[in-house]
Design a protein around this nucleic acid. Structure first.
Lengths: 138, 138
DNA sequence: ACAAACCCTATTTAATTTATAGGGTTTGTT
DNA sequence: AACAAACCCTATAAATTAAATAGGGTTTGT
């Protein structure tokens, strides 16, 4: 299941997507809309900004705004950023690889092989769904 | 990522699948093979048994054995049993549904809609991969 | 009778996630 | 130039969940 961080991120991105005619949107506004703690959401928006999905403006009248087209923000990117690996096992993760400690020999592990297939097929899904798909449904 | 419980379950099932010529296999044997605590694994095998995937024999000379054909043990079943929902959000889970508490109106939530699609496609994958696929790779 | 091996429930420990705290920096307005 | 609004950053605490341990109970072959 997605962490709250990722869920909040998706809600925030959706909100920003729906208000992209405005120059900026306040953290407070998004937080209130979804009942999220201001400070917690702030950390999340910061991460999204560092990852290049959002821009922000400081000072009075500032706020956040989408810096990319919704179609260029795939779910895979958001999930990886806030939740980490998409793969089901560390030993098949493309971005966060680590050996599994209960696995004696990865080279001959059937679980590993099957999970690589699962990962590839799952990635196809998550790379093809974007913020745009969410916005189209609202 | 899969929990250790699920990983251990998959390793145990694989081990049992590779030894299905024997009548029974000891917990201890599987535990040692993969460096798992005997007691922790015991709990997991119990769950697999209650779910109808394994049989067991008590007393001296007893142990566990596969009660189903490997092709009839889909990954989706193992994951759901030990890890819970496959869906990414509680509000789109088929087996463990719960409303999302940060969602104001599920009926008009684009995230919900898209995650239903993701769930359906993910399920296709996990229902079509079975223990047999793992065994074929070893 | 005895010991091997599964069966069951409860508790403890460790890890991770979620949330809070507290100040720092930038910038528009007066 | 002062002030306040609003983003920026790091560290710590609280809550939740996952992982492991504990301790005995029951069955069964020899």
């Amino acid at each position: 299941m997605l962490s709250k961080k990722t869920k909040y991120a998706l809600h925030a991105l959706t909100y920003l997507g729906k208000h992209k005619d405005q120059k900026t949107v306040l953290i407070q506004e998004i937080a209130e809309e979804h009942g999220i703690s201001h400070k917690f959401l702030e950390n999340i928006l910061l991460e999204l900004k560092k990852a290049g999905m959002l821009g922000s403006k400081k000072g009075k009248g500032g706020g956040y705004y989408l810096i990319k087209e919704p179609k260029d923000i795939p779910l895979s990117k958001v999930i990886r950023l806030l939740d980490g690996p998409i793969a089901m096992l560390p030993c098949v993760s493309l971005n966060y690889y680590e050996p599994c400690d209960e696995c004696k020999n990865e080279a001959v592990c059937g679980i590993n092989r099957v999970m690589i297939q699962v990962r590839d097929e799952t990635l196809k899904i998550l790379e093809n769904k974007s913020l745009e798909d969410i916005l189209k449904e609202e």
